Lab assay of single mutants.
Amino acid sequence: TTLTVNTQTYTFTSEEEAREFARRYGAKTIRKTNGTWEVHG
Rank of each mutant, 00 (worst) to 15 (best):
S14D: 08
R31H: 10
A18W: 01
V5R: 08
K32Q: 11
E38Q: 06
S14H: 03
A18I: 00
T11H: 08
I30A: 03
T2F: 05
E17M: 06
G41A: 12
V5G: 13
T33C: 15
F21C: 14
F21L: 02
G35N: 07
K32C: 15
E38V: 11
T1D: 13
V39Q: 00
E17F: 02
I30S: 04
N6W: 06
W37D: 01
W37L: 01
F12P: 00
R31V: 12
K32T: 10
F21R: 01
T29Q: 07
E16Q: 09
F21K: 01
N6P: 13
A22D: 01
G35A: 03
Y25S: 08
G41I: 15
V39D: 00
Y10H: 10
N34G: 06
K32S: 08
L3V: 13
T7E: 12
A18H: 00
A22F: 05
E38Y: 06
T1C: 15
A22T: 01
T9E: 04
T1R: 08
A18Y: 01
Q8E: 10
K28M: 12
R19F: 09
G35D: 08
T29N: 06
W37Y: 04
T4N: 14
F12V: 00
F12W: 00
W37V: 01
E20G: 02
W37I: 02
E20M: 05
Y25F: 10
E38S: 03
T36M: 14
E20Y: 03
A18F: 01
T1K: 12
T1L: 12
Y25V: 14
Q8V: 14
H40S: 14
I30N: 03
T7P: 08
T4I: 13
I30R: 05
N6F: 07
T7A: 09
T7M: 11
G41D: 08
Y25Q: 06
Y10F: 11
T36C: 15
Y10E: 02
T4K: 10
R23Y: 06
T1A: 12
T7V: 09
N34K: 04
F21N: 01
Y10G: 02
G41F: 15
R23C: 15
N6S: 10
E16V: 07
R24Q: 10
T29E: 10
T13E: 11
G26P: 03
K32R: 08
S14I: 03
Q8H: 14
F21G: 01
T36Q: 11
G26N: 07
T36N: 09
T7Q: 10
T1I: 10
T7N: 11
E15M: 05
T1V: 09
T36Y: 13
A18C: 02
E20V: 02
R23P: 01
T33L: 11
S14W: 01
H40A: 11
A22Q: 03
A27R: 05
E16K: 08
A18V: 00
F21P: 00
E16P: 03
T4E: 12
A22W: 03
E16R: 07
G35K: 03
V5H: 14
E38K: 02
T36A: 08
I30C: 09
K28Y: 08
R19Y: 10
K28S: 13
T29H: 11
Q8S: 09
Y10N: 03
N34F: 02
E16A: 11
E38P: 01
T13H: 08
I30E: 04
T9F: 13
K32W: 09
N6G: 11
R24Y: 06
K32Y: 14
R31T: 13
W37N: 01
T29I: 15
T36H: 11
G35R: 01
L3C: 15
K28C: 15
F21W: 07
R31F: 10
T4H: 13
E17V: 04
W37E: 00
A22M: 07
Y10R: 06
W37M: 01
E16D: 08
A18Q: 00
H40W: 10
Y25E: 04
V39F: 01
A27C: 15
A27G: 15
L3A: 13
T4M: 08
G35T: 04
I30V: 10
T4V: 13
E20D: 09
T29V: 15
T33Q: 09
A27H: 13
T13Y: 11
T11C: 15
V39S: 01
T2C: 15
N6M: 12
W37C: 01
R31E: 08
E15N: 00
H40K: 11
T7K: 07
R31P: 05
R23Q: 11
S14N: 10
N34V: 02
E16I: 07
Y25G: 02
N34A: 05
T11M: 07
T7W: 12
V5F: 07
T13W: 08
F21D: 01
L3E: 13
T9A: 07
E20Q: 06
V5A: 12
T1F: 09
G35L: 04
N34C: 15
Q8L: 12
G41N: 08
T29R: 05
Y10W: 12
T4Q: 12
R19H: 06
E38M: 05
T7C: 15
I30G: 01
T9Q: 06
K28P: 08
T7I: 12
T2I: 13
T33S: 12
R24P: 00
T2Y: 04
R24N: 07
E17L: 06
K28Q: 11
H40Q: 14
I30P: 02
A22K: 01
G26E: 04
K28G: 09
T29A: 14
G35Y: 03
F12E: 00
F21I: 02
Q8W: 12
V5T: 12
K32M: 12
T9K: 09
T9S: 08
Y10I: 07
E16G: 05
T29C: 15
G35F: 03
R24S: 05
G41V: 15
Y25A: 07
A22N: 01
T11A: 06
T2L: 10
G26I: 02
G26V: 02
T4S: 11
K28E: 11
L3T: 13
N6A: 11
F21S: 01
F12C: 09
F12N: 00
G41S: 13
V5M: 08
F12L: 00
T11Q: 07
K32F: 14
S14Q: 03
I30Q: 03
T7H: 14
N34R: 02
Y25I: 15
T36S: 07
T2S: 14
V39Y: 01
V39M: 01
Q8P: 11
E15R: 04
A22Y: 04
R19I: 12
T4Y: 05
Y10A: 05
R23N: 09
G41H: 14
K28R: 07
K28F: 07
T36G: 14
G26F: 04
T33M: 10
F21Y: 06
E17H: 03
A22R: 01
T2D: 13
A27T: 06
T2Q: 14
L3I: 14
N6I: 12
T11S: 09
A18M: 02
A22I: 03
R23E: 14
Q8D: 09
T9L: 10
Y10Q: 05
V5S: 13
R31G: 04
E20H: 03
E15L: 09
N34W: 00
E38D: 02
L3P: 14
A18L: 01
T29L: 15
K32A: 09
E15D: 02
L3K: 14
F12Q: 00
E17A: 08
K32E: 09
G35S: 04
T33G: 10
T1W: 04
N34M: 03
K32I: 08
H40F: 14
T7F: 12
H40N: 09
A18R: 00
G26K: 06
V39W: 01
R31S: 08
R19D: 08
R19P: 00
T9I: 15
G35I: 01
R19Q: 08
N34S: 04
G35W: 01
A27L: 15
W37K: 00
R24L: 11
R24W: 06
E20W: 05
A27M: 15
R23M: 08
T9R: 09
E16L: 07
E16W: 09
G35H: 04
R19L: 13
T11P: 02
T1G: 13
T36F: 12
G26D: 04
T33R: 10
Y10K: 06
N34E: 07
T33D: 13
G41L: 15
G41R: 07
N6Y: 07
T4P: 14
A27V: 09
Y10M: 08
A22V: 03
T33F: 08
R24I: 10
G35V: 01
L3M: 13
T9P: 09
A27P: 03
K32H: 10
T11K: 08
S14K: 04
G26H: 10
T1E: 13
R31N: 07
